[in-house]
């Protein structure tokens, strides 16, 4: 990290590799699977790079970067001319191809993506961070500014909700 503070592009590239998934999780949780998601993720890194010289404690780079990603996502939703997206219902499902026959498992995964997108933001964010990065609960807690127990609780609530919805749908 010190290397990229000193201006090494190579080292910054590695920071992108390291944090790309969690930044994407933060953006995805807020704006959903939109066409400008990639742009948003990249812009978060560009802004982080721009502010590196002002970052006093380099060990806080991760938190700093995720704050940028969070703010950009919120700005993105407020942008005029774009269709407003409800925070509590983002689109994580792939674009529908109604004519294409999906196998049972693929159908279940698609259903899961849709239901994760309908989880409350706090739960959705925890789920994405956990399943994208396989991060420890402590690491996710540090990123979200909550305790490990709270992360665990969010994941538990998310799983309960998903089980209920999927169970009901499958039963019906």
């Amino acid at each position: 990290m010190q290397q990229s503070i000193l201006g090494s592009r190579e080292a910054f590239g590695l920071l992108v590799v390291r944090y790309s998934r969690s930044v994407r999780a933060v953006c995805l949780a807020r704006i959903g699977r939109r066409s400008d998601l990639d742009d948003l993720v990249q812009e978060a890194f560009l802004r982080a790079y721009q502010g590196l010289s002002r970052l006093e404690d380099v060990s806080r780079f991760g938190a700093y970067l995720h704050r940028i990603a969070h703010n950009l996502s919120v700005d993105c939703l407020r942008r005029p001319g774009l269709e407003a997206v409800a925070m509590e219902d983002v689109d994580l499902a792939s674009p529908g191809e109604p004519t294409k026959a999906l196998d049972v498992r693929e159908e279940r995964l698609e259903k899961l993506r849709r239901q994760v997108g309908r989880l409350p933001l706090a739960l959705r964010e925890a789920v994405l961070l956990f399943y994208f990065e396989q991060k420890s609960l402590g690491a996710i807690g540090a990123l979200l500014g909550i305790t490990e127990a709270a992360v665990n609780q969010r994941l538990h609530r998310a799983r309960v909700q998903l089980r209920q919805i999927l169970g009901e749908q499958e039963a019906s």
């Binding site: 592009r9 990639d38 789920v127």
Partner: peptide
């Protein structure tokens, strides 16, 4: 959940290449 969400996680190396190209 892992199988459903992993495809959304993107490609970190592709992200890095795109960011480096814009620096």
């Amino acid at each position: 959940l892992r199988d459903a969400l992993q495809p959304l996680a993107g490609d970190p190396v592709a992200d890095a290449m795109a960011v480096l190209a814009k620096l």
